[in-house]
Design a binder for these strands. Structure first.
Length: 701
DNA sequence: GGCGGCGGCACC
DNA sequence: AAACGGTGCCGCCGCC
């Protein structure tokens, strides 16, 4: 058991309306002293759309109370919907969803400070230690009882065959049971003294359990509050120096950017994206037919019932049955057992050599993926209004890129790669249009800005095609020739040119592709060997490691400023142990001096990438905040729906599309707002966004 | 029947 | 698979 800590106020269970009103008075009188109240809820489950608050808790440094959901209305207007009252929570969006599900229109009007985000800003490397329990241990040295210790173990589901319902108690049942105050036994009901003694024992036990439940629930609210105060102090001591942020330290940055962003993400999750289920259903049949056909062919050929989803089965087929030789081995994971791989690279190699079975399996795999993850997978997430509500994780990536889950809407196939056009299933609400806005070459432009490379900046400002220029400079070919090849390719693709590409044009396009891949690779800190392997795959043409190294060397020769910048950042990394994004956020690595050479090299690559990727995330975040809070866009009925790293998906009434597009474009291109003189604060290169609209995500132009 | 490792693969 | 950064999810399979 956990020792009782005398420095922590005891949790009180509040049950009557009059008592609740007294607490409202108290918190209204004193909230300004604490600048925020800890808030937490115990809910019927984890479903963000359906589950509700059962009991909830509110706390300041001196008091913590726990109440049933039935008392929410008493707090609703004076506290919960009071814009002057801010809330300290852990995993804030979760509780906000539960409160929203629990009343007609319960919204928490003030700030939502999420201690997970604070913990992340303090040290993004503490993976798995950002939760409330972990932080309380790490920062205060206190342990907190676990859910299981207070409420008991949730038994496995026991599904009734007739009703399909779970016959065993659910999480919600355990919580409801724990928060039902026990009724004291009445003497007259127990004439037998032995029965009376037993009843008293049972009552005392139940009372103890009940009190510990109330204590536990209100402890989380209290802990969130004191942790928020603690992180405020810690983050204040971490200064940030940036011309692109008003914040002078990480605490200010948290309040200026991350706190409003939490609420923004919650709104996006709440809105959801409309999906045309019919489109998904239409794809399903043909996909299943095609997969079954391939399955039959394999069955016929082997005389066995093949499982094409099983790598063991596929290994048997290619290596034992067809006697093929492995192309490469699998990683082996933690067990270290390496097996012959059957991945895309392998199958593609064989397919290139004319192996029809490899070709068939590749086709099966691509359909299987799309069918399982998207066509069938997405339908599980539809709400009654045909909308999908993803979870947007503010601290999902070490670079503070967003991540999306349940379902992941950031990895929907691109239409150019997808025969089944899953993105066409993403549509707008009634009388609306989808508005899709993309940053163009954001990361490469950031590289130009950071490095100050004159040639790159000049080329971007002049509107030169960067990859064509790179080829021209690398090999001493006229820029216009390379550009002409690119245009010729487009003309052929658009059906505007009948004669095929000349050999020279194809050659130049190879070069351009190689230059493009090199540029991408440099942002990731690529090595020559890996670049060569990638290009061999991509171009279906042998590129030797030596050629890979030459490409990188030549690329740096064209943009020496980029080379110098990367070297400078490496030096700073060795010196400081961290790098910074444009708004002054950190990606920490610790002392590279103490690392194995291999790890230090990896840190160098990660650091170089973190600057660019993290800054792109900063920019997208700013753009989202500007769009969401822009009075003009709000008046035009624009609703931001999704972010896919450098792309914003939104919707607006049809008649406002032109105005909305112009405004979204402007805000995205000026993500840092104005400086103190009222002129837009810009980078050394423009950050153009292309904006389109349409009826589906795939067709918005 | 739930969970986690693994291979594989979708996105930026 | 690799000296390429960052994610999440599917189905299989073995384990408990």
């Amino acid at each position: 058991m956990h020792t009782f800590d005398m420095s922590i106020p005891a949790g009180r269970w509040v049950e009557s309306e009059s008592e609740a009103r007294q607490w409202v008075e108290y918190f209204l009188k004193t909230h300004s002293l604490n600048n925020g109240l800890g808030l937490d809820s115990e809910t019927s489950g984890l479903d963000l759309k359906r589950d509700q608050v059962i009991v909830w808790s509110i706390a300041d440094v001196n008091n913590r109370i726990c109440l049933p959901a039935s008392l929410i209305p008493i707090f609703k207007e004076p506290i919960l919907e009071n814009p002057a009252i801010n809330f300290d929570l852990t995993n804030a969006k979760f509780d906000a969803h539960m409160f929203a599900n629990s009343g007609a229109d319960i919204s928490l009007a003030g700030e939502w400070r999420n201690t997970i985000v604070q913990s992340f800003l303090k040290n993004e490397n503490n993976q798995g230690r950002h939760g409330l329990k972990e932080c309380i241990v790490d920062h205060f040295g206190r342990t907190t009882p676990t859910f299981q210790e207070v409420f008991g173990k949730v038994p496995p589901k026991k599904i009734d065959k007739v009703t399909g319902l779970n016959l065993n108690p659910t999480v919600g049942d355990l919580i409801r049971r724990a928060f039902t105050p026990p009724v004291p036994p009445r003497r007259e009901d127990y004439p037998d003294p032995q029965l009376w003694d037993a009843a008293v024992l049972m009552y005392n036990d139940a009372l103890h359990k009940f009190q510990s439940a109330a204590d536990y629930a209100s402890l989380d609210a209290y802990n969130s509050h004191v942790l928020r105060l603690h992180f405020d102090e810690l983050l204040t001591t971490i200064p940030i120096r940036s011309n692109y942020s008003q914040a002078k330290n990480l605490r200010d940055y948290f309040y200026q950017t991350e706190v409003p962003f939490t609420k923004l993400l919650w709104k996006l999750e709440r809105r959801g994206v409309t999906v045309d289920r019919g489109h998904l259903l239409e794809q399903s049949g043909p996909m299943e037919k095609e997969m079954e056909e391939i399955q039959r062919e394999f069955n016929r050929y082997t005389g066995r019932l093949m499982n094409l989803d099983s790598t063991e089965n596929i290994r048997w087929f290619f290596f034992d049955h067809l006697k093929k030789t492995p192309v490469k081995m699998t990683k082996g994971g933690t067990t270290g057992i390496k097996k012959a791989s059957t991945d895309f690279d392998t199958l593609d190699t064989w397919a290139g050599q004319g192996d029809e079975w490899a070709t068939k399996l590749l086709r099966y795999r691509s359909i299987r993926k799309t069918h399982g993850t998207y066509v069938e997978g997405l339908q599980k997430w539809l709400d009654p209004y045909y909308r999908i509500h993803t979870s947007l994780n503010q601290t999902g990536a070490v670079t503070m890129r967003l991540s999306s889950s349940e379902p992941n809407l950031q990895n929907i196939p691109r239409p150019s790669e997808d025969r089944f056009k899953i993105r066409e299933a993403f549509i707008h609400g009634p009388r609306m249009k989808l508005v899709v806005a993309d940053y163009e070459q954001l990361e490469m432009r950031l590289m130009a800005h950071f490095s100050g490379d004159e040639k790159m900046i000049g080329a971007i400002r002049d509107g030169t095609d960067l990859h064509c220029l790179t080829v021209a400079e690398m090999y001493g070919i006229p820029y216009d020739d390379v550009m002409a090849a690119k245009k010729a390719e487009k003309a052929v693709n658009d059906g505007k040119r009948s004669q095929p590409l000349t050999e020279r044009e194809i050659e130049l396009l190879f070069y351009r592709q190689a230059a493009k891949a090199t540029g991408f690779g440099i942002i990731y800190g690529i090595g020559g060997e890996h670049l060569a392997a990638n290009l061999t795959q991509e171009l279906k043409r042998l590129v030797t490691p030596q050629e890979g190294f030459d490409l990188i060397k030549k690329w740096f020769g064209v943009f020496p400023g980029v080379k110098a910048y990367i070297e400078e950042q490496k030096m700073l990394l060795w010196q400081n142990g961290y790098v910074e994004t444009i708004v002054g956020r950190f990606r920490r690595f610790g002392a590279l001096q103490g690392m194995a050479k291999k790890d230090a090299k990896q840190a160098e690559r990660q650091a170089g990438n973190a600057i660019v990727q993290g800054t792109a995330a900063d920019i997208a975040k700013n753009a989202m905040l500007l769009c969401e809070h822009d009075p003009e866009l709000n008046a035009l009925g624009y609703r931001l729906l999704l972010q896919i790293h450098d792309e914003l998906l939104g919707e607006c009434p049809e008649e406002n599309v032109v105005k909305v597009k112009a405004r979204v474009k402007y805000l995205m291109e000026n993500p840092f707002g104005n400086d103190s003189f009222g002129t837009p604060l810009r980078l050394s290169v423009p950050l153009p966004a292309s904006v389109g609209h349409g009826d589906t995500w795939a067709t918005a132009k």
